[in-house]
Design a protein around this nucleic acid. Sequence first.
DNA 1: CGCGGCTTTGATGTTCATCAAGTAAAGTGG
DNA 2: CCACTTTACTTGATGAACATCAAAGCCGCG
Lengths: 229, 229
Amino acid sequence: MQIKSPDCTVCQFRSMMFDSLSRDELGRLNTCKSQHLFGKGELIVREGSAIQAIIYLHKGLIKLHKTTSDGRSQIISIARPFDFVGLLSVFSNDLYRYSITAIEDSSVCFINKDCIHHEILNNGKFALDIIRRMSQATDDVLQAKFSLSMKHLRGRIAHILLDFAENIYNTLAFDLPVSRKEISELIDMRPENVIRILSEFRKDGIIRINGPEIVILKPELLRQISDAG
Amino acid sequence: MQIKSPDCTVCQFRSMMFDSLSRDELGRLNTCKSQHLFGKGELIVREGSAIQAIIYLHKGLIKLHKTTSDGRSQIISIARPFDFVGLLSVFSNDLYRYSITAIEDSSVCFINKDCIHHEILNNGKFALDIIRRMSQATDDVLQAKFSLSMKHLRGRIAHILLDFAENIYNTLAFDLPVSRKEISELIDMRPENVIRILSEFRKDGIIRINGPEIVILKPELLRQISDAG
DNA sequence: CGCGGCTTTGATGTTCATCAAGTAAAGTGG
DNA sequence: CCACTTTACTTGATGAACATCAAAGCCGCG
């Protein structure tokens, strides 16, 4: 669903996006963007389709994911508001290498790829900004995958629970926006084992579970399990 | 060992590096670079040290690697000549997140980070070039790790052998530049299993082994094993 | 209602890490 | 140049971690 696009020059998130652009430049960008709403579960970008725009997440939560040859799915990362998404392949490829799907109701800004190109060519400060963001995003993904590959299943679950609590919701009680199956795709294991280990944590009094609701009762212990691997 | 730095403006690899720079700009870069030789096994950059330069691999082969909390090591990627290395964290961090070590005798160009910054700020075309390279490098690493995580051990070994043959040496007969242990760190398994599976492949007549020398006798079969996972 | 997908728990099997032990190769000091 | 140490390589045996299989309950949806 496309909605009325507010003016970038007065966008409340402007400073987080385009600090380095002048009012004029922002005005130009304003003419080549469009804002859309996506409901939970709705597909935003299909893997393999042509890249036309950079995606800026305004509100909500989205996942980058990929389907394997044998039909299974893997989640590359989860993006939070104010993240640019898909910076990774936008400049090196013509086709998206990942699908993007909303995992909560989300508001998304599409900024035409050519416009971004144009601004990069003409504004070095903006270019440097984009580069910094790309580096950061990449580092984060690699760091996460690296750290996961060193951990046993219990450590991975502990890690992902703390991640949701600390980096996404900023509270020890939250509703999981993803199914057990999706968690398994995010941290590279089977759904059965996600459930099994969550149950163990529940029995051990480390967390409380109510359907999608998770309450972390012993964050220190969870941290310990995550660090131990 | 530092060697006489040839002039960038006449560097034979210039076009692969800095297509988008004018003669003047190349001249400026020339003043803030230095070229060094590293022997096989020599450390080029230590993880955690301050980032002062971008590294351009002129000749040889180098690895990016990382040490875990429990003292083990993991190889992130292997870089070939003409690759920029460490673009990943150069712009988002003050410290190197990975170590870099020569795995063959290598010639390396250090280009001061501030100079690169300066050129990016003043030359949009160069900025776009850098962004493209970063994207490509990142995509490749993620793609490789993604594909590995889907495979069983035999598939990983098959994959890495084909990678050396097709993407690095362009021949079915080559000397492995890395030890069995390093292979295990690159594809996330144990050295014992690297050896075991190489032996199996040898017994099955898929490859021939002579110490470090590998000859791939049945590339199609190897491809099949790699694809099957 | 009934179908399909997600969830949950238990039982079984496979893959792989770990342990152990021995050989070869490569560097080190006398 | 040879004893000595260390590091890499190799093979086999064992066990742990995890995937797979099976079956039953749940929920949303046409």
